[in-house]
Design a binder for these strands. Structure first.
Lengths: 154, 154
DNA sequence: TATTGTTATACTCTATAACTATA
DNA sequence: TATAGTTATAGAGTATAACAATA
């Protein structure tokens, strides 16, 4: 009796949960992950990894620690992530000349190609799906999120 | 030379990352977690757990599986979460009379009290902090997120 | 002494599948 | 046979702390 169960679920009183920013952010992020996976799943990379590649591509020689702090990824996690990206041949690690404790990152040609080919699609991924938002609303949403998080406009 | 390092980080070119919905959602969620932890950390509950308590309080006798599907939490994780909430004395599990495979959830008096005392603060947590958004912008953001995620307005 | 990145440990969340007890 | 929930296992992300190399 699937119908009966579905009926039950429709009776749930969500109420003021729809006024919770935390809940809405969580739901939005789950949707975003699903869209990413549907479109880029066969690339074998996760959203955070693609973001790291784009950031390194835009800032060649960026230190690993800087990438971690900009993206708010823990250093110990960053290490493992960069090792994966290096193993896949997208990233090169090199000691920083002035400070040999530090590691500077650059993309390999394969990494650069991957970013060039896909970054635009990554940015437009959510617009093109049936989000219910028109272009103006989408931009408004981005603007409000930038203001909320303190991320500077491009 | 901390100053030197800070200077380096300020030179990072974020560029079109500020146009990425996924990135902004991630940053917003990190901020939201931090605010939650600063305000409710000593309660010993996480955002998802508080949300479950509120949902059960608003829908006494709700099945565990329904809670899981509404909040998009995996059933196996839901089991462990409910066990924690039960152990802390906030939730009671009972077999559903019509279907003894299923479990219906209700709050204990302690659970109900916790929700009554804190839910309003949970909802208002992000407004009151220096988010940079005024009340109108905050409501607009919630509205756009509801539209994006398909969550019905209260 | 302090900092960059690495390694190690533990815990949470996710993903999956096998299992139980019911239906 | 199918479903509700549980258990088990493996992987990713987070949080900490200890560590090596370098500053």
């Amino acid at each position: 009796m699937t119908a009966a169960r579905d009926d039950r679920e429709e009776q749930v009183e969500i109420g003021s949960l729809s006024g919770s920013l935390g809940y809405l952010l969580r739901m939005a992020q789950l949707d975003a992950f699903e869209r990413f996976h549907a479109r880029f799943g066969d690339m074998g990379l996760k959203p955070a990894e693609v973001t790291v590649l784009w950031l390194v591509g835009s800032n060649p020689g960026l230190r690993q620690g800087t990438v971690a702090s900009v993206l708010r990824i823990k250093p110990s996690h960053m290490t493992k992530m960069i090792q994966r990206l290096e193993k896949k041949g997208y990233v090169v690690r090199r000691a920083v000349p002035d400070d040999r404790r530090a590691v500077q990152l650059t993309l390999t040609p394969a990494g650069a190609q991957l970013v060039d080919r896909n970054w635009s699609d990554v940015l437009n991924l959510h617009r093109k799906f049936q989000t219910g938002l028109d272009e103006g609303e989408f931009e408004e949403l981005l603007q409000l999120l930038r203001k909320l998080t303190g991320v500077a406009d491009a």
